[in-house]
Simulated assay, not measured.
Amino acid sequence: MRAKDKPGLSIRINLPGGGRFGPGKAALLDAIAELGSLNKAASQLGMSYPRARKLVEEMNRDFDTPLVLSSQGGTDGGGSRLSETGQKLRDVYRQLCQRSDAHNKALLEQIGQFTKGK
């Protein structure tokens, strides 16, 4: 995570077919992985459950295999988890963000000289 008082990058990937993957969907994947529930993940992110479900449906549609796997209630109580592809995508996206920040550190610092928060 980047400090709020310094400029940083926010990477959004334009996918074939018109879909997009960026920080919001990555945060949703992180919360699902941590909490094991789409409802709890949505709540933690301050997002409605229908909005979170729509984002998961978009992600599952945009990739060859679903990123999030969900099961209905029952004796196990249901829940959501990341597929292997979802885990790998999340890891690769984080690496991309970290490398981009590191590579552009000097330029970001220059931009920071012009901001009000310096």
Rank of each mutant, 00 (worst) to 15 (best):
D91M: 07
M1A: 04
G19P: 03
L108Y: 09
K118A: 12
S70C: 02
T85R: 02
A26M: 14
L15H: 03
P7Y: 13
R20T: 12
D5L: 12
T75A: 08
K54F: 07
M1H: 09
Y93G: 06
K25H: 03
S37P: 06
K40I: 09
F114V: 02
G17Y: 08
Q95K: 15
F21Q: 02
I32A: 03
E109G: 08
M47V: 08
N60V: 06
P50E: 00
N39S: 14
G8T: 13
Q44W: 02
S71T: 12
R2V: 11
K6R: 12
S37Y: 01
A102D: 10
L69W: 08
T75W: 02
I32P: 00
K116A: 11
I32C: 10
S83W: 03
I11V: 15
A33T: 01
R2L: 04
K88N: 12
A41T: 01
D76H: 15
Q72N: 04
K6V: 02
A41D: 02
Q98T: 12
R2K: 13
A26S: 12
R12K: 05
K4D: 08
E58P: 00
L9Y: 06
Q72H: 14
T115Y: 15
I13H: 05
R53C: 07
K25R: 15
P50K: 04
H103K: 11
C97I: 02
T85E: 05
F114R: 01
S43R: 14
A106D: 14
G46W: 01
A3H: 11
P50L: 07
A106I: 13
L107H: 06
K116C: 10
R51D: 14
S100H: 09
K88L: 10
L107W: 04
K4I: 07
L29Y: 03
D76G: 07
P50M: 02
R99M: 13
Y49G: 09
P7V: 06
L55P: 00
G36Y: 05
L69S: 14
I111S: 03
L69F: 12
E57P: 01
G8V: 09
D30W: 05
R51K: 11
N60K: 09
V92L: 13
R12H: 03
Q87S: 07
H103V: 07
D30H: 08
F63D: 06
Q87D: 13
D76R: 15
K4T: 13
D62C: 10
M1I: 15
G117T: 08
D91N: 06
C97A: 05
